[in-house]
């Protein structure tokens, strides 16, 4: 399952200067400095609100948030655990 609202959110909030082709599922958001410190807050708030999940401070590891695919994995994993 993919999450189109996640892609739209990242495109609108952080990647306005990227074309849809550039914002691939595997573009490294961390390596390229696309998500700034306030962006992290926005992303967490979005994930918690949009996908009804809780991200604890321990899970806020940069290694988990590199790409859209990785963030989708987090959502899938959380939903599986909650089910």
């Amino acid at each position: 399952m993919s999450y189109p609202t996640l892609r739209t959110f990242i495109a609108d909030e952080f990647a306005m200067d990227l074309t849809p082709d550039q914002l691939t599922d595997d573009l490294d958001l961390i390596e390229n400095g696309i998500i700034d410190s306030l962006g992290v807050l926005k992303l967490i708030a979005f994930l918690e609100g949009e996908f009804d999940l809780i991200i604890t401070p321990d899970e806020l590891d940069p290694d988990n948030y590199h790409t859209i695919s990785m963030i989708e994995d987090i959502i899938r994993e959380k939903h599986k655990t909650a089910a």
Binding site: E31, G33, D36, S37, Y65
Partner: peptide, 8 residues
């Protein structure tokens, strides 16, 4: 050198 707040 290039990573942002998260990771850099």
């Amino acid at each position: 050198p290039t990573k942002g707040a998260l990771g850099g």
